[in-house]
Structures are given as structure tokens and as C-alpha cells.
């Protein structure tokens, strides 16, 4: 446990010191999105990696958080700090209610149902023009502020978003090591066996679904208040798939893995920009190569690779 805490402290320190290295360049802006995507990946990982339930509709919850926050603050003049928890609670309740029928489904039926849910939410964003501004988007969302401190620059937003992200990491680590986490893993391995030893697997799945939705919604609110403009295109099926990819590439069931996956897939397009029209091909090929050579995700694959390299080097020295 102590080791866990030390690891987290080191991670947090690194996150806090990062801005010193960049002095407010545009990469700060990208790192803000790394933070938001890390939150989302962890949320999805709780569901997929721990409880073993797939979701192809998480962009919907992300979008609901963003739109609820955005509409309440931009159109109704609410305080953002009030809108954010209200959005999260609303999305949580919605997920809880819809979780009962949806999580009864298994395998590809579950994939299909969550996909459908995501698409329905996306269409609602597009069609309720009076409320959401429709496909043209919603602008004029205020930045968050504490007293006189307005989070209106990349550096300020960085600390804001990463504050939430670190809290999410801490929460997820705690959850994973708690009784609930163990019960979840039992459900993952065998639902029947878990039921036999007294885990209310159905309720547990629904609860984790709701928790996952709540964190996604919080990430959505943060997104809305840092971007100050949102449009439905950011919350479509493609983004749900991208989130899934982040979780798997990072490593299923690993919190730090989710961070690595989110960081890699958010930063990758920045590196690939130099490749111009070839970027999309390289991106696709990299995804495939990574799953082929690191089937356990970055969090397991990188240390393994490192060990192999050491061995190789050792072998060379012997020779």
C-alpha cells in the first residue's frame, strides 16, 4: 500500500512540474486534453477493465456533462461550480436507471445497446437546436473561476484539469484495492461464481456503470469550460471508439495504463503532423502493431520490452 502511495506521489509531482518544462507553449493546451482524456479512460476502464462490461457509448455521457454544464451556464447564467455537480448527478442517475436493462445484455448485444445509446444522445444534441444550438454548436460558455481567479489560460486550465484528473486517479486506485474492486474482479472472471459467494453482481455492475458515467460527465463539464465552445461532432461514435482504444492500448485494468493510453493517443497526432497525408495510415498501422506486440497494453508491454532490451544488451556483453 505504501508503495502505491509513493507511486502516486511521484506521478502527481511529475504532473505538477510539467508546466515548468513548457513555459506556456501550445503543447500545454494539448496536455490539458491529455488530462481530460485520462479521466475518461479511467472511467471507461473501471467498467471495461474491472467489471468486464464493454461500452461503445461513453462519448454520450461525456457529451451530456459538457452540454448540461454549457447550457446551464451559458444560457441560464448558473454558476459553473453548481452546474458541474448537478450535471454529474443527473448523468449518474440516468446511467443508473438505464444500467439495469442495458447491463442485463451480454457480449455483442451489450456493445450494440451502448452504441445505440451513444448515437441516440448524439442525435438529441443535433436536433434540440433551441437548447443546444444544434450542429452549429454552443458558444459563450464561461471559464471556471474561484473568487477572482479565472481559469482562462492554458497553464491555469492545466492545473485545474489535472487537479480533477489526479483526484480521479486516487479514487480509482482506492476503488480497485477495496472490497468493491475485488468483487468487481470476481464478476469479471465469473459472474456466476461471484454470485455464489454472495456478490450482488447485477447491482454492482449498474453501480460501476453509474460511477463511470459520473466521471465521464465531470470530464465533459471540464471540457466545456476550458474550450468555451462545444458542438455535437466532438461526442460522436468515433470518440467512443477512440476512448475504447485508449483503454486497451494503455492496458486493461490498470489506472496508470489508462493515463499512458490517453497520453499516447492524444499526443500521437501531434507527432504525426509532420507526416502530412500519411499520418492517418501511420496511426492505423501503429494501433495494429501495438496490439500485436503489446497485447497487454503499454503498461505491461513497455517494461517487458525494456527487460528484453537489457537482456539483449547483456547477451551482447557476454559475447
Amino acid at each position: 500500500m505504501k508503495k502505491e502511495l509513493l507511486k502516486f506521489a511521484a506521478f502527481a509531482l511529475l504532473v505538477m512540474l510539467m508546466p515548468l518544462a513548457f513555459k506556456g507553449g501550445y503543447l500545454m493546451n494539448v496536455l490539458v486534453f491529455v488530462g481530460i482524456n485520462t479521466m475518461l479512460s479511467i472511467a471507461l476502464n473501471l467498467l471495461l477493465g474491472y467489471a468486464g462490461q464493454i461500452s461503445l457509448g461513453h462519448a454520450g455521457f461525456f457529451g451530456l456533462g459538457a452540454y448540461l454544464s454549457g447550457i446551464l451556464t451559458a444560457s441560464y447564467g448558473w454558476n459553473a461550480w453548481l452546474a458541474m455537480p448537478l450535471a454529474a448527478v443527473t448523468v449518474g442517475i440516468l446511467a443508473y436507471l438505464i444500467g439495469f436493462p442495458i447491463l442485463k445484455l451480454k457480449g455483442h448485444y451489450l456493445a450494440m445497446a451502448t452504441l445505440g445509446l451513444g448515437i441516440i444522445i448524439y442525435i438529441v444534441f443535433n436536433e434540440t437546436v433551441d437548447l443546444t444550438g444544434g450542429p452549429s454548436g454552443l458558444s459563450g460558455i464561461p471559464n471556471l473561476a474561484i473568487g477572482g481567479l479565472r481559469f482562462d489560460s492554458d497553464v491555469k486550465n492545466y492545473y485545474l484539469v489535472w487537479g480533477f484528473t489526479l483526484a480521479t486517479v486516487l479514487f480509482a486506485l482506492n476503488l480497485a484495492n477495496s472490497r468493491v474492486g475485488r468483487a468487481l474482479r470476481a464478476v469479471h472472471d465469473s459472474e456466476v461464481a461471484a454470485r455464489v459467494v454472495g456478490v450482488n453482481s447485477r447491482l454492482l455492475k449498474v453501480q460501476i456503470f453509474a460511477v463511470s458515467a459520473i466521471f465521464s460527465s465531470l470530464a465533459g463539464s471540464l471540457y466545456a469550460h476550458t474550450m468555451t465552445f462545444i458542438s455535437p461532432a466532438s461526442f460522436g461514435f468515433n470518440f467512443s471508439v477512440e476512448l475504447l482504444t485508449m483503454v486497451v492500448i494503455g492496458g486493461l485494468g490498470s489506472i496508470y495504463g489508462s493515463f499512458l493510453g490517453a497520453a499516447l493517443l492524444t499526443l500521437l497526432p501531434e507527432f504525426l503532423r509532420a507526416a502530412h497525408d500519411y499520418d492517418i495510415i501511420i496511426y492505423g498501422a501503429l494501433l495494429m502493431v501495438m496490439v500485436m506486440f503489446m497485447p497487454g497494453g503499454l503498461v505491461r508491454g513497455v517494461p517487458e520490452l525494456y527487460r528484453k532490451l537489457i537482456k539483449l544488451k547483456g547477451g551482447a556483453d557476454h559475447a
Binding site: 492517418i280 496511426y283 492505423g284 500485436m292 497485447p295
Partner: peptide
């Protein structure tokens, strides 16, 4: 075929990667 751990979720990601790759090639 070369996949070392063909878990369903890994296979899904492989096919997603494949679809991005094929689409990119077609665009080019």
C-alpha cells in the same frame, strides 16, 4: 493470425486499426 493474445477486445482494436489503415490508403 500473428496475434499473440487473441482476446476479443484485442481483436476489436486490431480491426479498428485495420479499418483506419485501409481508409487512409484509399484516401491517399
Amino acid at each position: 493470425r500473428p496475434l499473440r493474445q487473441p482476446t476479443p477486445i484485442n481483436l476489436v482494436i486490431i480491426t479498428i486499426g485495420g479499418s483506419i489503415l485501409i481508409r487512409g490508403l484509399a484516401m491517399l
